[in-house]
Design a binder for these strands. Structure first.
Ligand SMILES: [Mn+2]
Ligand SMILES: [Mn+2]
Ligand SMILES: [Zn+2]
Ligand SMILES: [Zn+2]
Lengths: 143, 143
DNA sequence: TTGTAAATGAGAATCACTTGCAATTATAGC
DNA sequence: GCTATAATTGCAAGTGATTCTCATTTACAA
């Protein structure tokens, strides 16, 4: 078995390594998608049939709190999770096909930084996401 | 009675002007705050005691769809509403005192515009909001 | 004044997520 | 390895926000 970075971090922080946690971590590390709790649950059950949805929620809560994964709001009513990326990025979700386009806009980071300094704010969370139609879906409609 | 712009717009689009809609609109126009459905409901009941929360939700849904008001996610689990502002702006919510700071960052609009052109996207919604601690609250803690 | 479709109120339903609790289980110490 | 113990889990019930169903009311065109 290869020592996954997430497992190592969990262990180092004093958390126990259970089969269900291991499986959720594996799913998160393998799929470089933006999985929601339900998909995470479905994929996890394939490797740990008795895992519960509650445990999935509890696991992502721990990982999030440790800064190992990030939760995004992608225009749907539920959250999506992703291992924390080397380079921070934001998301555009196509309303037509569901595709998620990741992008980076350094200007946004700069704008936030300037605002924080000017107003004396300490920024804790940044929520930035777009929805609309991708090039393909626009073609399939007028324009 | 002064003919409120929201009422006029509603009427023009073929919607009926009911007492409850009139009241919700008034509350939205009077308070230049970011009200959530519950506050909107409480304020509306003072002028229309029998109004229901469902009607508040139905009313803001109609107004939103008509582009007369905007719904924001300010870090809480529920939405907040505001009449659509002349100049678009974003929000920072203080985790300590709840204060909402409005700000404008033209750079963000530019970044979005550039992204849309580069990737051929049609942007429909932009979600951009920050949370953290305001200057006052930072003083009241370390740093 | 009336007919009719739109809107409302009350409460049930839904959805994503959280929690209580008894049963498991990881793991530190022997 | 065996044990004690506290962390973790599964399940089911609980939440909070929002939506929906449906019988009743009401706006408003004619
Ligand atoms: Mn999803
Ligand atoms: Mn609120
Ligand atoms: Zn698309
Ligand atoms: Zn504050």
């Amino acid at each position: 078995m290869k020592p996954s970075p997430l497992i190592t971090a969990l262990q180092a922080s004093g958390h126990r390594i259970t089969r269900q946690r291991r499986v959720v971590l594996e799913v998160l590390e393998e799929s470089q998608e933006h999985l929601d709790a339900e998909s995470l649950y479905q994929k996890a059950r394939q490797r740990a049939p008795r895992i519960s949805l509650a445990t999935v929620y509890r696991t992502v809560a721990v990982l999030k709190q440790m800064g190992l994964i990030a939760e995004y709001s992608l225009g749907e009513e539920h959250g999506h999770f992703e291992t924390v990326p080397e380079t921070p990025h934001y998301h555009f979700t196509c309303i037509g096909c569901g595709q998620v386009v990741e992008f980076d806009t350094p200007q946004v980071a700069v704008a936030i930084q300037e605002l924080a300094e000017r107003e004396g704010l300490e920024i804790c969370t940044v929520q930035f996401s777009l929805t609309g139609y991708c090039a393909c879906c626009r073609a399939g409609r007028g324009r």
